[in-house]
Design a binder for these strands. Sequence first.
DNA 1: GTTGCATTTGGAATCGATTCCAAAATTGGT
DNA 2: ACCAATTTTGGAATCGATTCCAAATGCAAC
Lengths: 332, 332
Amino acid sequence: MARATVQDVAKTAGVSVGTVSRVLNKSPAVSESSKEKVTAAIRQLNYRPLASARDLRRDRTMRILALAKNLNSPVISEAFRGVGDAAASSGYVSLIAPTAGDLEREQQLVDMLRNGSVDGLIMFSPTMPDEDVNEMAEQLSVVQVCEIADSEAAFGVSIDDRQAAFDITRHLIETGGRRLAMIGNRAARSGRLREEGFRQAAAEAGMSPDQMLFVEGEFDFHSGRQLTRKLLTADPLPDAVFCGSDTVAAGCVREITDAGLRVPDDIAVAGFDDSIQAEMCVPELTTIRQPAYDMGRVAFEALFARMTEPGEHRRGRTFLPHELVVRDSTKG
Amino acid sequence: MARATVQDVAKTAGVSVGTVSRVLNKSPAVSESSKEKVTAAIRQLNYRPLASARDLRRDRTMRILALAKNLNSPVISEAFRGVGDAAASSGYVSLIAPTAGDLEREQQLVDMLRNGSVDGLIMFSPTMPDEDVNEMAEQLSVVQVCEIADSEAAFGVSIDDRQAAFDITRHLIETGGRRLAMIGNRAARSGRLREEGFRQAAAEAGMSPDQMLFVEGEFDFHSGRQLTRKLLTADPLPDAVFCGSDTVAAGCVREITDAGLRVPDDIAVAGFDDSIQAEMCVPELTTIRQPAYDMGRVAFEALFARMTEPGEHRRGRTFLPHELVVRDSTKG
DNA sequence: GTTGCATTTGGAATCGATTCCAAAATTGGT
DNA sequence: ACCAATTTTGGAATCGATTCCAAATGCAAC
């Protein structure tokens, strides 16, 4: 049995296609009796309006797409919940696709915006170079979350990464940290900003750059362990480590503990994100809470504005407040 | 500047729309010179074929959608990688949407298949009742992963949950477990199968049902802690706990440790999934490895078959092999 | 230069839902 | 019963890409 069309429904209901369409779109200009006939025919034929035909005619899809490198990041999945809820309450469907850091796949997904498969795009962690992101941001309905490219045209939502890193580093210093280390990631803009905040806090406390250790790598548990192993060869040992994510911090704590040292007594460790990992770790991690869900909501609102007022270029990046969460991995 | 259409390209290139379309679709029946003119015009106008028009005419979208309750489950995100890679190599784009366990939202997303927004659907953890899943599975291109509804018409890929639970429970018994407990989840079919396997292994070892503790709840860390607290009020205490997921097991280990008991000496703990949580836990968890990536690949292959040979109803469920991974949370 | 065959091209019809306009039906007032 | 105002309806045009068919062009051989 082939798919029923609006024509079939019209014939079955004994009305015209116009009337069927009016019923579908809840136009008030339909008599009660036609509405009933049409509704009955729709049910009888199990009819659903074909999306591509509707989208073609209406010139919009009521769908948006979010892109991220991975899905298993707690911040991203939480932010996406925010996007999804905000989108739903505006009648949009929100979809996600992981790029896996593959440029070609990312390009293909971005093309879904260019070719009208979706009305808007939310980018969490772009793989493409900043200049390409900026070019896109100028012409298309795109909003960045967490990572915001450094451009006039960039629309985006994030926390103030530099300030957050500054705050937590200051906490490490105030609780006795004298030989600081950081496990970071210069590949991401947010990673570079966090490094800046870290260095600035250390400098203000009178530490010279060569007193600070810095190592970088991927942001997963194993990488956290491996990079910490490198830190533990330093002499003198660091007494406080700021990690760019909770997962890395968990690896860091594990490696320190396995080496027979105590956290925080011998070495204090701080994370970032306040994900569930921070609570699963022993000792529980001092970290920075990102308001991920709200970031998602706000990002959708910004995207909605771009989609519905295309001329309007009230660009802007929004910074939401972060929060220092002190737990047992630093001296309290 | 409005969007360029195939007409605009034809005019600019000085050819007909037919020729433009042939170039776009790499038809061989185009002269070299036309091809160049068209390619130049496309670049000049920055033209992209409109997806909805193409989809309408072709009656397919080359897109598939995967639905899951949450995105942050390690098994799901890994399985989705498999889906994505397999889909990409067949020219499909794969998208994900979380349902958050909300029936209405799930319904709306499933409608994307019914209304032709996507060509196929992969369901990880349905919220709708089994009978609805079965009805869908009969008429539409749907493949289930992990959770497979119990129906003739069901297409799906998973491990043998019952057998896996049986295997790991036997391991608990072989390593000295005498008073077994399980933290499970009867809401999911896979949860019920795991409970069956658990009970069967215990029964075969001569344990009576009332010797076994069973508690159930959500599958997250906090729930794992809370349910374990309940188990620790039992007298005598269990000496081996099988948890339905690594995350729950991590909560279980934490609660046991906080109570001053040792894992595995006082109580052995086993998880499920072999996610990164299993390695992050101290002690590292004995668990069941699910071949999540491969499950995703196989699921796409099955879906591809359903999409391309709609008549063909060689239904079937595929079970991929699981693996017992022994680590320090059980006695070796 | 003509014939025959293969290659290339133009253009109309098509996919299915929406929307606009004019025509038809209904309503109400007198 | 008639007119005007309003509500409701039918049907054609439209969105943009694809595809089919017929026409046109190119090429080779004689």
